[in-house]
Amino acid sequence: MNYLLKSAAFLAILALAGCSNLQNDIDVPLPSYSSQLVVECYLEPGKVPSLAVTTSVPYLSSVLPQVPSDVTVTLIMPNGTSVPLAYSPNFKALTDTTGEKFHSHIGRDPLVARPGDVFRLDVRDTKGRHATSTTTYLAPIPIDSVEFKFNDKTGSERKAYFLTNFRDPATPGDCYRLQLHKGDPIPKNLIKSPEVDISLEDRLLNGQNFTVGTSYRFNANDSVTATLYHTEYAFYRFRQSVRDARNANGNPFSQPSAIYGNVEGGVGIFAVLSATRATKVVK
């Protein structure tokens, strides 16, 4: 809620400044910056492993992402087997509008994972930079039910909210991410921008039922797919810190935040996605 308040106050000030012509460009001499390896890897059971290795850049430098070509990536499987991921960037994803993600390195065989499996990642370049990370595949959490309810309006104002129900296991420290996508649940729709995307933790509701709702935002005949990810705390914290860091960009109501990932020797996140889905047509 503090985040909302800070953001609201920030936007109000920006609006006021904009109305009154109180914003102006300035030159900010920034000191030199040493770039770091940035690793983003989301494994999915049944899919070929891939990841994006880029580098961080000075803030005011050019827009193009920096994709180093001298990076060697190794995925270490739960049984200790090392699987090299080849440098094979799909640069066309950078200009693609379907939602396909960019990767710099990719494996050959689909991933096999069971709950509790631990995976490790080893990333190194020729300049001596070396990043490592470890993640665990968590058991998927079933979605108990999804439901909707229309408001009492008519015409274009008739909208429905959507509820997703699931039960948190008794163990504390579980984190979740829930996405709602509109449209037929075919891959092309599920990789586009979600209608709702929220992160949750069971700090206050450990072992209890979760009911996650939306505002009135769905139309009749919308097909809504709920995807519930059971995530490690590291992934949850990474998202929070990314949000806090973005929010602190000049916002006088926020403190700057460091980025908290699970990549040692670099910046980023390594995770195995553990998802369950449920689809319902609103009508």
Binding site: V28, L30, P31, Y33, S35, Q36, V38, E40, Y42, E44, A52, T54, T55, S56, V57, P58, Y59, P65, G99, K101, F102, R177, Q179, H181, L190, I191, K192, S193, P194, D197, T227, Y229, V242, A245, N249, G250, P256, V267, L273
Partner: peptide
């Protein structure tokens, strides 16, 4: 003020 920046693509389905 931030000195550096990087991009986050996020998971599939979060374009």
């Amino acid at each position: 003020l931030p000195l550096g920046r990087f991009g986050v693509q996020d998971i599939p389905g979060s374009s």
